[in-house]
Each structure stands twice: as structure tokens, then as C-alpha cells.
Write a protein that binds this DNA or RNA. Structure first.
Lengths: 160, 160
DNA sequence: CTTGACCTTGGATTAAACTCCAAGGTTTAT
DNA sequence: ATAAACCTTGGAGTTTAATCCAAGGTCAAG
């Protein structure tokens, strides 16, 4: 059992954020003290964890609310509804992962192509690659480099 | 060479968004017509692609601006500065991928555990799992299921 | 030479997701 | 029994990222 301040602290968020989530139907404390203080159970805390993870992963609060809303009105949902919705989100997550992987590869290539040395970046290929977003060019450059010499670029051996 | 409307259309965004990005230093057209119309080059378009990809992947406009700002003032940046910044973003991307993978696994387990049948979701394990976010419980359930019988749940054989 | 589809600017408005504030009630430690 | 540290509500303010609007300029087609 946590009071709002404790829960907020352990989750690294603001108490106002918790009240905000409550107002928007994402998470209500399962109890109140006689004096009206919010009291959160372990289940409430777990639910918050889910919300925070979903948020960290790029879902909007209303999307998260969609996922959680099922619960409010269980009897009126069929298993198929639930599965459809979850599978839908699952697809979105997979697509997001794929997009992130593409972005990661681009950045990796940019990083690998640059020596990281103290020279001015004025003619640095990393910038040219970013500028034109022409990753294939960087890939060719890097590929050549790998075949002829070594993989990790060294100080002073920069393509800048 | 594109005018603002064309570029916006091909990229699936609003012309106002392009003007907004310009105002905030993310993307300026490399030319203007005599009459003041914006004219975007292929490089400008590529830069926009980069911005849109970075955005899709969860970076804020100011983070993207950071990455792109290097370019505005090339001579005053060393290769090491550039590499540091890119490696920094790279780490963020990797962490985001890891978080997404964890989320994906949770959703996958939830999906696998539910039959998707027409029965009421009133007692559906998918909901219980979401509620408590107790994925390990679902994992155990699913594991047992897999060992004893079959992997893909069938209509009418739901743990609801 | 005008109609319709473009474009310009500056400023207002929106939506999401907080974050802060004021005025007051509650708890706990000394 | 009183200060410090909590909590309550309602409402206002902030930030980010657009999106919309008004008043007017440009341009190709008929």
C-alpha cells in the first residue's frame, strides 16, 4: 500500500502525473483513506508499471487507455475482441522495432565511418552521410575499408 | 526541385509542418524563386526523410536539431564531437529497441495465452495478466500448455 | 483577363501530456 | 500543540508539435 507520494517517488514520476492519469481514466487508486488520501495497492503499482512501459515504448495515453479500458467493462468484451486489439498493438510494436533497427544501422554506419579524431569535421563523411542521408554511400565506403585494411577506424586515419 | 506542396504531398505531411520545421531550424529550402516561393532540392528532401525517420523512431525535434545542427557550423566541430554525439544517440536507440523487445514479448505472451474465441472475456487470463502485469504467470501457463498439448490455442480451448 | 490552384506572411488555435499554484485539510515527530 | 511534511481540489500555465486562418501575391489554362 502506497500513498501517492511514495508511489510517485518509486516510479520516478510526479504526483501530479498520477492525479492526471486518474483524471484520464488510466489508473485510479483502489482505495482512499477516511480522510480522502489516495491508497495504491501492489496491483495498482503494477498497472502503473505497465502504463509507464507502454509510454516509454511510444504509445500515447489514449492508446494505452484503449488497452486498459477492456478491463473496466470485461463482461461486454469477447476474448476475440481482446486478442484482436492485442495483436493489433503487437503489429505496431513490431513495425516500430523494425524502424528503430533501420535507424540504428544508419547511426552505426555513421559512427563506424568516422574516426572520432580531433580534426575539424568540416569535410567529415559522417556529416555528408547525414546531410544526404545516403547511407548506401557510407556502406560502400565502410565496406571497402573493411576489406582492405581493418574494421575499427583509428585516430588520424579518418575519411574527414 | 520541389515546391512546398509537392514535397509535403510526397512525404505525407502538411505544408505548414514544413514551414514549422524551417522556423525551428530543422530544414530550410536551399532556394527561393524570385517571387519568394520555397524550392527544395533532392538533398533537402533527403534531409527531410532523415528528420521524419528520426521522429518516427521517437526523437524529439530538438534532439533531431542537435544532430543536424553540427552541419550549420561544421568548422567548429571536431570529428570526435560528432562521433560522441552519434554514439550517444546510438545508445539511446539500442535502449529503446531493448525496451520495445520486452514489451513485444509481453504482448506476444498475452496474445498466445488467449484463445480469441467468442466467449466473454470476463475471466480471460489476458486481462488478468495485463492487470497485474504478471507476465511470468502467463509464461508458466503458456509453458505448461505447450508441453502438454499444442502451441497454438484453438477456439473453445481458452483459459478464459 | 479572370478563375482556380498554388504560394507568402504573421499570428491564433489546437491537442497531448504534463506541471504548477493557491487555499486548505491531515499526519507525524518533537 | 505546533511545525514540517504530507495530502486534497480546482484551475491555470507550460511545452511540444503541429494545424488553421486571414489577407494577400503568383502563375498556368482557357
Amino acid at each position: 500500500m502506497y500513498r501517492i507520494g511514495e508511489l510517485a517517488k518509486t516510479c520516478g514520476i510526479n504526483t501530479d502525473t498520477l492525479r492526471f492519469y486518474e483524471k484520464h481514466g488510466l489508473l485510479a487508486p483502489s482505495k482512499r483513506t477516511v480522510s480522502g488520501y489516495r491508497v495504491y495497492s501492489a496491483d495498482d503499482a503494477a498497472r502503473l508499471q505497465f502504463i509507464l512501459r507502454a509510454k516509454a515504448v511510444g504509445f500515447s495515453l489514449s492508446e494505452i487507455a484503449d488497452l486498459l479500458s477492456i478491463e473496466l467493462d470485461k463482461a461486454n468484451w469477447a476474448c476475440s475482441d481482446v486478442k484482436t486489439m492485442v495483436d493489433d498493438k503487437l503489429l505496431q510494436v513490431k513495425q516500430r522495432i523494425a524502424e528503430l533497427e533501420r535507424f540504428r544501422r544508419s547511426l552505426q554506419i555513421l559512427s563506424d565511418t568516422c574516426c572520432g579524431g580531433p580534426a575539424s569535421a568540416e569535410h567529415c563523411s559522417i556529416l555528408q552521410a547525414l546531410e544526404s542521408c545516403d547511407v548506401s554511400r557510407s556502406e560502400r565506403l565502410l565496406d571497402k575499408e573493411t576489406h582492405t585494411h581493418h574494421h575499427a577506424p583509428v585516430q588520424g586515419d579518418c575519411k574527414c
